[in-house]
Nucleic acid binder design. Structure first.
Lengths: 211, 211
DNA sequence: ACGAGAATTGACCGCTTGGTCAAATCCATC
DNA sequence: GATGGATTTGACCAAGCGGTCAATTCTCGT
């Protein structure tokens, strides 16, 4: 399900995609701050610098816009998740995956926050994704981890709670960025600080599971 | 700053505190689901089973109600935080603290979610708490951990990122409960599952930092 | 240069929002 | 049982909401 232009005629000029992209990005920032219900189409339009009626030309309803935003986020999540499979060695697989999730949180904090906000309100839009695609992803990686455990390559543990820890820790840097900022003298983590945090997350998690 | 009755006259009957408590609890559930902006006083009043005008008698504005809810959450957070200091031994202190945070997430998921939602919108109401009380708590516990590191009792690490991992992991079980539910066949974690998750969180975190 | 569809937009609509208010009711005290 | 403040509540209001629409302007193939 990819995002379709509102009327299905061929795009006329490059301005179309540009404007759509502007609205899309404005929507991301407003949804991330206010959640679906708290977000207003007027505010989204204002940030995009277009009249509200113009927004409704590109995205017929607030929910259609929200769904478009959401789909991209799920797609990015899956892309980062694939890094877990790039290596057969647990140490490498886990390191790579945690690093990818940390980088995603850093590169796209808004996406992570929209996800969080969607879960907080009961996940009405992504519930199906969670119950099917995400559940399947988790089940198959649990199987991999159980083989590692059986082979004595990692400690014995319940894989899903391990993944929850990874998700929680990495996404915390996006979702709670404002809290981290407040605890960092008002400034967001510098690149050096973030690299240190990433390295430590990998390190602590690895030490936590390697025998 | 404790919560004051709207007019300051002495309470007449027990019904007053009861009604106030009902509104308070209804407000918690709505704020947790919809965030501050998405929450409506009409919905809060509906869940409390009182007319909206009655809500505004007890809490003059939506923000006053929100602030009252928020204060209690910060207070609970600090209470759980004190468990970190109950023991001089790092292993004991960390175990006890993680257990306390997990128990708090289980006992009061709404509080955790309201906190998360408040951070997501930029923490306008609790920013001062974060920059003062929370920052001081963190600084002094960082000092404790640095002494442990110097004494070789735990691995060398940056204490604050370690606390972020604890906060993230424990609060994940409250904030992302609906996601966990979706990954658990639609059912929330049973008490046994939760105890297992708690034990594993403690275990993995301890292994992650003990030398 | 003109016709036709694409894109733009101010004005507008019905509904919901947070909050107000005055009238009604309750209830401890005398 | 009368008094007066505490409490309750339906009705109401101005502002904001998501969404519509008709009139206008733009853009391209001819």
């Amino acid at each position: 399900m990819t995002l379709t232009p509102p009327p299905q005629r061929p795009a006329r000029s490059a301005g179309r995609e540009l404007k759509e992209k502007g609205l899309f990005e404005a929507a991301r920032s407003v949804f991330a701050e206010e959640g679906f219900k708290g977000a207003t189409t007027a505010e989204i339009a204002r940030r995009a610098g277009v009249p509200k009626a113009n927004l409704h030309y590109y995205f017929p309803t607030k929910e259609a816009l929200y769904r478009a935003v959401t789909e991209e986020i799920l797609s990015d999540w899956l892309a980062a998740a694939s890094s877990f499979d790039e290596n057969d060695d647990p140490k490498q697989a886990i390191s790579t995956y945690v690093a990818a999730k940390m980088d995603l949180a850093r590169a796209d904090p808004l996406g992570s926050r929209i996800w969080a906000s969607e879960i907080l309100r009961g996940a009405p839009v992504i519930k199906d994704f969670l119950e099917t695609t995400l559940a399947e992803w988790l089940a198959s990686r649990e199987a991999i981890m159980r083989r590692w455990i059986a082979a004595g390559k990692i400690r014995s543990l319940e894989p899903r709670y391990f993944f929850y820890m990874i998700w929680a820790t990495t996404q915390h840097y996006a979702d709670f960025e404002d809290q981290i900022k407040a605890l960092n003298g008002g400034a967001p983590l510098s690149d050096e600080q973030f690299q240190k945090a990433k390295a430590q997350a990998i390190d602590t998690i690895l030490n936590g599971v390697m025998p």
